[in-house]
Each structure stands twice: as structure tokens, then as C-alpha cells.
């Protein structure tokens, strides 16, 4: 699984960071950084929650 963020949509609400801080980090510059674009399968539920809870629908999961 690969995490794809549409940075044109992302407005750094940091919801994803609240769900999975080991993958998503909003830094002091207010921008989102994806710490691991290929999270382990064990994190799938949290990744799907991040997709659902993103207020801007900016996160998606690619299967490749």
C-alpha cells in the first residue's frame, strides 16, 4: 500500500497526524510531511481512517 496525498487539496488540518503520527506529520511550517509513503499492512485500518477523516479528501491509498 502506498499513501498518496494531493498537496493541492491538503490544508494541514492535521487530522491524519492525530490518527497516525508515525506516518503523517504537520511541522511548524504548517505543511504536511508523509514520513513513510509505504506503511506496513498492519497500519491499513489507520490509513483508511485517515482517508475517511481528511476534511479535504486529500489522502488516498494506491495499491502498487
Amino acid at each position: 500500500m502506498r499513501i498518496v496525498v494531493d498537496f493541492d487539496l491538503c490544508e494541514s488540518n492535521a487530522v491524519c497526524m492525530g490518527i497516525a503520527p508515525e506516518i503523517f506529520e504537520v511541522r511548524d511550517d504548517d505543511f504536511l510531511y508523509v514520513l513513510d509513503e509505504n506503511p506496513p499492512e498492519s497500519m491499513r485500518a489507520k490509513m483508511e481512517e485517515s482517508v475517511q477523516r481528511c476534511p479535504k479528501q486529500a489522502i488516498s491509498i494506491a495499491e502498487d
Partner: peptide
């Protein structure tokens, strides 16, 4: 206000 990182950390 314009502090999303802190809000999410403090929310936790």
C-alpha cells in the same frame, strides 16, 4: 489559530 500541529498534539 494557524497552529494545526499543536492542536492535534494537545488533543491527544
Amino acid at each position: 489559530m494557524n497552529r494545526p500541529r499543536h492542536v492535534v498534539q494537545l488533543r491527544a
